[in-house]
Design a protein around this nucleic acid. Structure first.
Lengths: 235, 235
DNA sequence: ACAAAAGTGTTCATCCTACACCCATGC
DNA sequence: GCATGGGTGTAGGATGAACACTTTTGT
């Protein structure tokens, strides 16, 4: 057993799946690798864990290095540790997913990457290592979460219309939803606070803007809710 | 960075929360530590990951060392990696939980433990390190899982009565449930296969025995179901 | 006028809860 | 008979899906 002091845990990394929502599409933030293996290919941003930081703190640091922002919604997916997942040596990775509003931030590829870019989820390039598994796990988790906790708001601007909210759900769940029923579900949850503001300069009736109610948001995050048959709704 | 070959990943461990169901109680399998720190105290069984095994395989091995059995229900909870969670050095642990039928197996404490024993969850001794957090996470996950996948059957004998099933749910969810409604929920799921066998030598009407339908079990494990308001049922 | 999206209302089916009730067995 | 648990029935309410319909705004 090597007790040699090291600055980083060399067999344990972090990988982040970063979701955004823009133009009614779910997007994924990828970096272009500057190092071998798979130099030049697009992959999930990640890094190693420092000796003196917890794993959650490590994921926050990596995310901040990328986006310049902290206080994002960030949650662990789990550990991925097949023997051959990384070709050079044995590395287990702890995967996280984050939700972010793409427009708000300027990206910073960080030390090991030449570029960072948003990709629509449908146009995601082939990912190296076990990143496809990690991504799939993140998608599954997001799809479940969005039906049981009000986390979707981390992807929306502060003020939004009900249609935007519906499009978010449609993009995440990959279904078409029925507008009247969708509205009612959310108004009944009593989570949205209607504002006295409306859309402007739209070529149709202006929609009312809403924002989520802080207190109720917290409460529902703890107790959870069930939009149970959501995926069966509409045609 | 040390590239010294090692037989185990020295900064990465596995810990297992092992649940059982006996006497209408949820039980927890703990081992008594034979090594410092916390020598002599009861803790979650665990171990280190070998260089040539995946993390899931490692948890299966550790479980098999303990119980002599494989093919148990075993699922990852996630990684726990606060800096100070283990006092001697920096170790991140990957936590798993397992479901097992206590009566079926003879325990084997394994190399680092002097004894292995089942504890009713309510009488769980104080656990060292961050094991209380891990246990709480396992309980939360189990409570959720049991309402959305038919995993409860991993805790029951092959043939069981509906009351046993109900007691299992009551023990896991810590609620009292309404008998008629509980029965109907499960019969409607079409998951249980009624047998032409009944209880014997009971001082009341003998209950019919059921077992779960393999095909439907698999189907429901994939699609999931929702016993949604289960925790609100009954008084 | 028309297109496009904002909203409201209503019907029917399904599911849930609560609770009343009867059945079988051993003491 | 009575205690204990097995098992069925049912009324009333809540929720959801489907879809028809009206309103508002810009071109």
């Amino acid at each position: 057993m090597s007790e040699v002091p090291e600055s980083k845990l060399n067999s344990l990394s972090i990988d982040c799946v970063i979701f955004g929502f823009e133009d009614a599409q779910i997007k994924l933030l990828l970096i272009q690798r500057e190092l071998d293996p798979h130099r030049g290919s697009w992959s999930l941003p990640g890094g190693f864990i420092k000796m003196e930081e917890g794993i959650h703190a490590a994921s926050e640091r990596i995310l901040k290095e990328m986006t310049g922002v902290d206080n994002l919604y960030l949650e662990q997916l789990g550990a991925f540790g097949e023997v051959d997942r990384y070709p050079l040596k044995r590395v287990v990775t702890i995967a996280y997913y984050a939700l972010i509003k793409p427009g708000n931030y300027t990206l910073n590829p960080g030390p090991d990457a030449s570029e960072a870019r948003w990709f629509p989820l449908e146009e995601c390039p082939p990912l190296p290592f076990d990143h496809p598994d990690i991504l799939q796990s993140a998608i599954n988790t997001l799809q479940w979460k969005v039906q049981h906790q009000p986390i979707g708001f981390n992807l929306l601007p502060e003020k939004f219309t009900l249609l935007q909210l519906q499009e978010l759900y449609e993009a995440i769940l990959q279904v078409k939803l029925d507008k009247p029923n969708f509205r009612r579900k959310f108004t009944r949850l009593d989570l949205l606070e209607p504002l006295d503001e409306y859309q402007k300069a739209v070529s149709h009736r202006a929609a009312r803007l809403y924002r989520f109610d802080e207190a109720k948001y917290k409460e529902l995050t703890e107790t959870g809710f069930s939009l149970r048959e959501l995926r069966l709704m509409g045609g």
